[in-house]
Design a protein around this nucleic acid. Structure first.
Length: 576
RNA sequence: GCCCCGUUAGCUCAGCGGAUAGAGCAUCCGCCUUCUAAGCGGAGGGCCGCAAGUUCGAUUCUUGCACGGGGCACCA
């Protein structure tokens, strides 16, 4: 009996009880949900329906439960295939079900049949969702903080895809023309570039303390790359000539973006789409968006600037869209960008931002509301800051100055792509993340990703061993022979994957999957280890029928581990 | 001052309105003639920040308070 069948049975029993006049009618029956109790002594499934109906029906929960149970038993007994083994009323009025063994083979057969598809659902019904993440400014490398956003965004996108949405992954490049920061960035690169040709300039370092100078060694790295690409072609650029700098800025920026793409690829992230803020300006989308706000009467002029009356939609204060000097503000581009996303036909937008951008949620949603779009169709995921511990000290990462911790050099090269992704996804986005680089470098059992991947490698080693012994992996087996408690526990966990993925997708919380993986790995290790103490409990035991059943079980475990790792973009090594 | 996030075991954190609140690390005690010990079993350790409210039932929802972090530009 499946979960759905049990729910139907309960609904039917309530209907019978109502027909018999034993319980009253309710306006609307709440959706029936049944849980898998944490405590296995409480059975396979538990329903709290009697507790929920107690109030509207004005009956004590326990007696209500007794009536419902009576009808459930009658219905089950009358069915062609009675499948409830035991049913009991517990505590304040829970109805606990123990089903006959049939569910266990069903779960395994389902996994074997679905293979890579196991865990997917069609809840999204193909609706189009755009997930935008990382979106680092083109003035430096991808940092560890971007890495957290990248891991979360990529996992959320993957979860949505598994939940049946049509997902697009997008990176938004803030290369706006009115950017003072970008000019300073280019100026800094050219200064370091000139120093490569002029020893005296390098020694004197006249602008070493200039306000506009970007600190950090990565600027020098970019200058070196620039020299490799263009040689001495731009050696004579006047650092104080804003126009000349602005003209050459693009060269610098393209190099930076290429580098970002490389770093992201090393992290396993590839975007479907890159949108440039400059193109929104050039194509007139920004002007268009602002004009629409003006036409809709959502703006006003004040002291020469154009303001968006965002307070009308719950923002703290109104926002300037166009400065008194005629240039657009950052949010003008951002508003146009979000408007444009919906124009491209997406049903749902997900933005992944650092918590330091939390203040932008209200104004962005306000803009959508002003366009007459339901702001609920934009989901903004804020993740708390990443803190880095190195040599026992907290390192503060800063984009403008030095101390930048680069995702590639400082994390991926140290602990590997999989470990980095796993650590980023181990915690809820709402919690600050500490990464102790020294500890993470250890690559020991303390590292949970190894624990999980090792479980997968172990499943593979069983098949390896079987093959050496000339034992073929059976296509089917008598799964009713899986009678050990460790086996039942394992299969119950395997059964949870579709629910876990659906839940994590619905909540936009990938960390549930890392927890699931650890739990599943632990149950597999326990199951496996039982064979170390008792050879009869090994997968490759004497009894061929039991052995075949266990091989099918291990195959299902391998599939589920692989699928769950895959959702998070983690590899499933066959050997470790 | 206002907005967002947090407060659960020594530490870092899970916990989807339910039953005896969990995991990892750390500490202590056990298990290698092994299908991979990169593993497993066991023990100790909790006013779930405080106070109200809603509920049959609150660690979970609401409000207030306290403490900690982040954010409050005609910067991006």
């Amino acid at each position: 009996m499946t979960k759905e069948q049990l729910i139907n049975l309960i609904a039917l029993a309530i209907g019978r009880a109502q027909e018999a006049g034993e319980i009253g009618q309710v306006e609307s029956l709440p959706p029936l949900v049944i849980d898998v109790p944490k405590n296995r002594a409480h059975g396979d499934y538990a329903s709290n329906i009697a507790l929920i109906l107690a109030k509207p029906l004005k009956m004590p929960p326990r007696s209500l439960a007794e009536i419902v149970v009576k009808h459930i038993q009658a219905l089950d007994a009358a069915s062609s295939e009675p499948s409830i083994d035991a049913i009991e009323i517990a505590g304040p009025g829970f109805i606990n079900f123990k089903l006959q063994g049939g569910w266990l083979p069903q779960v395994i057969e389902d996994i074997v049949a679905k293979g890579e598809q196991y865990g997917r659902s069609n809840a999204g019904e193909g609706r189009k969702v755009l997930v935008e993440y990382v979106s680092a400014n083109p003035n430096g490398p991808i940092t560890v903080a971007h890495g957290r956003g990248g891991a979360i965004g990529d996992a959320v996108a993957s979860l949505q895809a598994h939940a049946g949405y049509d997902v697009t992954r997008e990176f938004y490049v803030n290369d706006a023309l009115n950017s003072t920061q970008m000019n300073n960035f280019a100026r800094s690169v050219f200064y370091r570039y000139q120093q490569l040709f002029d020893e005296q300039l390098a020694k004197d370092d006249p602008y070493g303390d200039a306000d506009w100078l970007y600190g950090g060694d990565y600027i020098r790295d970019i200058a070196i790359e620039f020299r490799e690409r263009y040689g001495a072609e731009y050696e004579g650029v006047d650092l104080h000539n804003d126009e000349a700098i602005a003209k050459l800025r693009e060269h610098v920026m393209n190099g930076t973006i290429d580098q970002q793409k490389e770093d992201l690829a090393a992290f396993g992230i590839v975007f479907d789409s890159w949108v440039f803020e400059s193109q929104l300006y050039e194509s007139g989308k920004v002007r268009e968006a602002i004009s629409e706000l003006v036409e809709r009467g959502e703006t006003y002029e004040h002291e020469g600037a154009l303001w968006f009356r965002s307070t009308k939609y719950g923002d703290d204060k109104d926002r300037v869209l166009r400065r008194s000097n005629g240039s657009y503000t950052y949010i003008a581009g951002d508003i146009a960008y979000h408007r444009e996303k919906f124009h491209r036909g997406f049903d749902l937008l997900v933005d992944v931002w650092g918590a330091d951008h939390g203040g932008y949620v209200a104004r962005t949603k306000a803009a959508l509301s002003a366009f007459g779009t339901d702001a609920g169709r934009l989901k903004v995921l804020l993740f708390q800051l990443v803190r880095i511990l190195k040599d026992g000290e907290m390192v503060r990462s800063s984009k403008r100055r030095g101390n930048i911790l680069e995702l590639k050099a400082d994390l991926i090269d140290e602990i590997g792509k999989d470990a980095a992704r796993f650590f980023f996804l181990m915690r809820s986005s709402d919690v600050p993340l500490d990464i102790d680089l020294d500890l993470a470098k250890e690559q020991s059992a303390k590292n949970p990703v190894f624990y999980v991947q090792y479980a997968h490698a172990r499943t593979c080693s069983v098949f390896e061993k079987a093959s050496q012994l000339g034992i073929a992996v059976p296509a089917a087996a008598d799964l009713s022979l899986l009678t050990q408690q460790t086996e039942a526990d394992l299969v119950k966990k395997l059964r949870d994957l579709p629910d876990e993925i659906a839940y994590a997708a619905r909540q936009y919380e990938p960390h549930h999957i890392t927890h699931y993986l650890r739990e599943l790995a632990a149950l597999f290790h326990t199951f496996y280890d039982a064979g170390n103490n008792d050879t009869a409990l090994r997968v490759l035991c004497e009894d061929a029928a039991v052995r075949d059943a266990r091989l099918v079980l291990v195959s299902a475990v391998r599939t589920v581990l692989r699928n769950a790792l895959g959702v998070l973009g983690l590899s499933a090594p066959e050997k470790m």
